[in-house]
């Protein structure tokens, strides 16, 4: 269950999306003003390069302008919908980039600037802070520590199976099965709470 502040914020965003679908440029500007800092933070964490994060943000909002009418309020909150669009584009980029590079461990990547690395909480702290808004804190916390860590690293840093294995110093197969069990348990828990999507 989303808290009251989160519902109010999302209600306003829903109206802005509806007006954007009508090609209302002022609504689009306001939507951008209110959501882009969040989406930029999501993108920077995953792609870790400013120009690429900016490019993804541009593509995402161009797509939002054209497809705002397809947003279905019944299925997801506006910010959730927007976040999914941006994460999906980021992941396409980094996974494709993996193929072109030999190094698997992106932790050595020093493109990560201080303003999106140093001050932020760790992925595990984030998963709890973020989960609170969606009411899935209990579900995430019920996962075993290593699984929780793997899901957090994948979600916030965009690590692949292979990168997770390197990062956690575990065999690939082990990490994969942790993740799968974790995702299954997460889903079962969300279903029990009545949070389907």
């Amino acid at each position: 269950m989303a808290d009251a502040a989160s519902s109010a914020r999302n209600a306003g965003l829903g109206e802005l999306l509806a007006r954007t679908a009508l090609a209302d440029q002022r609504a689009f500007a306001e939507l951008y003003r209110r959501t882009s800092p969040h989406l930029y933070a999501v993108a920077l964490r995953i792609v870790r390069e400013r120009p690429l994060a900016e490019e993804i943000l541009q593509e995402a909002y161009v797509s939002v302008w054209h497809h705002a009418g397809t947003y279905a309020a019944a299925k997801s909150q506006p910010l959730t919908w927007l976040t999914a669009i941006v994460r999906n584009r980021c992941l396409d980029q980094v996974r494709r980039r993996d193929v072109d590079t030999v190094t698997l461990d992106r932790d050595d990547d020093d493109a990560q600037g201080p303003e999106f690395a140093g001050t932020d909480p760790t992925p595990e702290q984030l998963i709890v802070a973020g989960a609170d808004a969606q009411g899935v804190r209990a579900c995430v916390e019920s996962l075993p520590g290593t699984t929780r860590q793997a899901i957090a690293l994948a979600f916030y840093q965009g690590l692949s199976h292979a990168e997770l294995a390197a990062h956690l110093h575990e065999p690939l197969g082990t990490v994969k099965s942790w993740l799968r069990r974790g995702l299954e348990r997460l889903k079962a828990c969300l279903d029990r709470l009545g949070i389907s999507a």
Binding site: H38, V42, L190
Partner: peptide, 16 residues
């Protein structure tokens, strides 16, 4: 995507 996206709400926003 929607199930997981809510986890991002904990991130500190960064203005582009």
């Amino acid at each position: 995507q929607w199930r997981l996206a809510g986890l991002a709400e904990g991130l500190t926003p960064i203005a582009p």
